[in-house]
Amino acid sequence: MTNTGVERRRPPNVEFRYLTPAGRRPTQYEEVTLHTQWSPRNFAAQGWFSPGSNGRPMWSEDSTRLRALDWWAYRDPAQLWFRPYVELQARQEEAIELAVEGAKQSGLFAEFAPVWRRILSHYYAAYRYVEYGLFLCFCYVQREALSDVVATPLVFEGLDKDRHAQAIALYCMDLEESLPDFSDRAAERVWLEDPVYQPTREYIERLLACRDWGEITIAVNLIFEALAAPMFGQEFLARFAAHHGDSVTPVILATAEADRRRSRGATVELLRFLMREDPANATVAQQWLSQWTPLAARAAHAFAPLFEMTDEKPVNFIEAWQRVSAAWAAQIQQLGLEAPRIEVMPQ
């Protein structure tokens, strides 16, 4: 080609000039994520064109008490963008399908102890409401988050929660197919009325009423998912399953747990980043910790009766709680924050 005024060349080192990579060279994640969200704070010099009826622009600094000089300086430690995310989730869903299909073919579901069937049909089936409620929370959080790099892991987290909710519903249908007396009909009542779930439901509903996306993110990933969710999913279900002939549920739980770990990592990094941006964010996060931790601890303790429902008890509630709450406190302290002291409430 000669008609273009420049010599034909292949510029392998050309980079986007508007982004500052975290490392020496920008990653593909940075290139396809950074500055897709505009703001007068990056390049939109004309300002916001269309405020809503509430007078707020499309993205508004008052959507959270957290403050940052540059919201685009954050990086998701997992560096996820659409393609790797979809690959990751397709692999996880295939793992679930394989486990379920294998169990069906080998008749493994028949090995599930009767008490365990009841636990799955009542309590695990009801957990999809938790995941669904969190999904709704993240619908809001991802809309409001103040930059693309901050929002992207939150978009994925919303979809993770939707995936978990659906995985539970589909699994229950698989169990119904294989076990004639199995039904998840009671799950909604358990969610709405069973004391095991009421503090969790209160937590989720309070999150739904919260309008600070930063607060929701921290109250979910650094508090609920670190303190209450593991008591049910990891300490109770996953540890008790094998003792009741169940090798399938732990596979589903492991995928959900992997998602949770990833989201927690993103939020830990978000908070570290924000405390570097503005030390006042530590005070805000500390206030949220004081506010939400007692509720999460109450939700965790409400799961205690589950640990007493079976004859086989691979772990008791107190041990499990000590392990989970100690790991949680260590993580909060690593962030330079204070883990609120948890009063163990009488059941």
């Binding site: 080609m1 273009t4 005024g5 420049v6 010599e7 034909r8 060349r9 510029p11 050309v14 980079e15 986007f16 000039r17 508007y18 982004l19 950074l34 500055h35 897709t36 505009w38 990056n42 390049f43 939109a44 010099a45 004309q46």
Partner: peptide, 16 residues
């Protein structure tokens, strides 16, 4: 492309 100039400011230009 032989002339990357312009592509390299893509999302800045989408803003300003």
């Amino acid at each position: 492309w032989q002339d990357p100039s312009g592509y390299d400011i893509a999302l800045k230009a989408a803003g300003n």
